Simulated scan of single mutants.
Amino acid sequence: MWTACAAAQEPLTPLMPGARDQCPVCGMLVSKYPNWVAAVRYRDGHAHFFDGAKDMFKYLQALPKYAPGHRATDIRDIQVTEFYGLARIDARKAFYVIGSDVLGPMGHEFVPLESRADAEEFMHDHRGKRILSFDQVVPAIVAEVDGGRVK
């Protein structure tokens, strides 16, 4: 599903939202929540920013709805903000904890961690329910997290 997004082999250049950048999914001003920023950059250089990984996944799973005229094959990179270090990391390589006691700007969230060990530590410390890789995040799981019904 996401292999079409696996684009450039260049080093990740962190993207920073401007003061007026709004999440295309929920409409929130993204720069207000720097610890949760996620981004999708296209090959032509433009980017869309999100107030968390959950809205980023919603966007990617319904690209025609949120970004008419854009194609997954045109995506250069996908970034999330890592929970502990607050650094921008490659979303496709991150581990996501769901069902924890940590809430993002839009409530229940996919909490991005850089390593499996960090995800396991976070899950233990914050009562998380599951650890997922990027490719394991399917629409049904996004709906589960969005509704706060993670088992």
Rank of each mutant, 00 (worst) to 15 (best):
A7D: 11
A8K: 11
Q9G: 13
Q9P: 10
E10D: 15
P11D: 13
P11K: 06
P11V: 07
L12R: 05
T13A: 09
P17D: 00
P17E: 02
G18D: 14
R20V: 14
R20D: 13
D21P: 01
Q22G: 07
Q22D: 08
C23S: 09
P24C: 14
P24R: 00
C26F: 12
C26N: 09
C26K: 10
C26H: 03
G27L: 10
V30K: 08
K32N: 13
K32V: 12
Y33W: 15
Y33S: 04
P34I: 11
N35C: 09
N35Y: 10
N35D: 14
N35Q: 13
W36P: 00
W36Q: 04
W36V: 00
V37K: 02
A38W: 01
A39C: 08
V40N: 02
V40E: 04
Y42G: 03
R43Q: 14
R43H: 13
H46R: 13
A47F: 00
H48R: 14
D51Y: 04
G52W: 01
G52Y: 02
G52N: 02
A53V: 04
D55G: 04
M56A: 13
M56L: 15
F57I: 09
K58H: 08
L60W: 02
L60R: 02
Q61G: 06
A62M: 11
K65C: 07
Y66W: 12
A67K: 02
P68I: 05
G69S: 07
G69R: 06
G69N: 06
H70A: 15
R71S: 14
R71I: 09
R71W: 04
A72G: 12
T73L: 12
D74W: 03
I75G: 03
D77K: 01
I78D: 00
I78M: 07
I78C: 05
Q79F: 05
Q79G: 05
V80Q: 02
V80S: 00
T81Q: 01
E82N: 05
E82W: 02
F83G: 01
F83Y: 06
Y84P: 00
Y84H: 10
G85M: 11
G85L: 10
L86Q: 15
L86H: 12
A87T: 11
R88N: 00
D90G: 04
A91C: 03
A91Y: 00
K93D: 01
K93S: 09
K93M: 06
A94H: 01
A94S: 08
F95Q: 01
V97C: 08
V97F: 07
I98G: 00
V102N: 06
L103T: 08
L103I: 07
G104L: 04
M106K: 11
G107C: 11
H108I: 05
E109F: 07
F110I: 06
F110P: 08
F110E: 08
V111P: 04
L113P: 04
L113W: 06
L113C: 15
L113G: 03
E114L: 12
E114K: 14
E114D: 13
R116E: 11
D118Y: 02
E120P: 08
E120M: 07
E121A: 12
